[in-house]
Design a protein around this nucleic acid. Sequence first.
DNA 1: ACCTGAACACCGTTCAAGT
DNA 2: ACCTGAACACCGTTCAAGT
Lengths: 230, 230
Amino acid sequence: MPPTPARREPLTRARVLAAAVALADAEGIEAVSMRRVAERLDVVPMALYKHIGDKEDLLDGMVDAVIADFRTAEGMPQNADWRTGFVALVLGARAALGMHPWARRVIETRTRRTSAVLGHMEALTRILLDGGLSPDLAHHAMHALGNRIWGFSPELFDDDPGHAAGARAESTAPAPDPAAYPSILAIAADARARRPDATSCDEDFEFGFALDLILDGIERARSTGWTSPC
Amino acid sequence: MPPTPARREPLTRARVLAAAVALADAEGIEAVSMRRVAERLDVVPMALYKHIGDKEDLLDGMVDAVIADFRTAEGMPQNADWRTGFVALVLGARAALGMHPWARRVIETRTRRTSAVLGHMEALTRILLDGGLSPDLAHHAMHALGNRIWGFSPELFDDDPGHAAGARAESTAPAPDPAAYPSILAIAADARARRPDATSCDEDFEFGFALDLILDGIERARSTGWTSPC
DNA sequence: ACCTGAACACCGTTCAAGT
DNA sequence: ACCTGAACACCGTTCAAGT
């Protein structure tokens, strides 16, 4: 009889998600469609529906796959300052997301809290509670940090005003006149003078500044025994 | 001759955007397609392309239309504390966005800085500079605030863990087990005990807490003469 | 049990044509 | 100048059928 044909590995949720992540890494998140993911797996699009619920579930799963690479809290120095452990987890998330530039945009659009998402939040919250924050303050701390718990901050300026946005879409609205935004120009000029070699703001410094500023505020609230007014 | 037929008002960018905003208000942002917007205007889809560049430009324009309703800085007390004016602008943005629940999600996905977006940033930045912040500190302040300059903070928890996410999509991944997240449960229980009538966290309080915390940090940096290390 | 084929109801966008 | 008709190249998802 003929040699057994190379039997295709059976589809699994993990294989589907890995293919989707690889596709997003290679071609960007807008290239990720059910059909293109199926194509990468040499399978007809409908085959995916046995393993993922729908497109939203695919995106949720892709985020989960990235979170699975986060450094865990295991082996963290046990009696260190709460800030040390907290910052380590956040910077671990930042490092993992740095490998998948599409992930931050996808995280911003997620509404379902998967077990991987809850796991990261739980680890952070536990550090806060163990560090002596009241549940109330820990709650507010998490909200104040927002998406910074994932190691990124929202992009405010993608570039200087008046810069022709690189994307392919052109607007029929009049282009902004840079001269109309003197204050923004002033801080942009200052930033450029300070770091003439950087093409944009130094993102790591920006992130650290904001993170420290918020954690300073939280620590101050903790040490002065802040309680919510209601 | 027959009575002149009711001549259709000619399409304009403003009319297209108004139709798109009305559609999003009525049916949610996912209902906004070029075809559905055209239908609302009694026009064939292609007619829109004379007035807007593409779908991205439509979304940019919708955000611009919402920003156009922001309370302006005109008539603001001139020699008040910089914080007063700053907070007034941010809360004005919050009020306007409150009328269009879809807008915050759309803003998070925008990458182009339109003149309306830059106008709001300029007004805020100007208040910071006039208030005595260095351009460098003003720059970091804006980044630290992130999307909070639009009057919203990212939703972290949409609900308690284990809550069956209301959306129609079901996942094939195992549902999270609430017991695995004791710290999150602890703060959720605490919040519920504190505000038993609220169905979720009190969003306005959350927002104000985080805004104040960040502005406290910025004001402290200003008054102690902070300068960036590079 | 797992995958397939064909189809449905949508998308955004182009181009050449109409008025 | 402004809008239309027909078409192209995609989408996500369903259902009944195949193996």
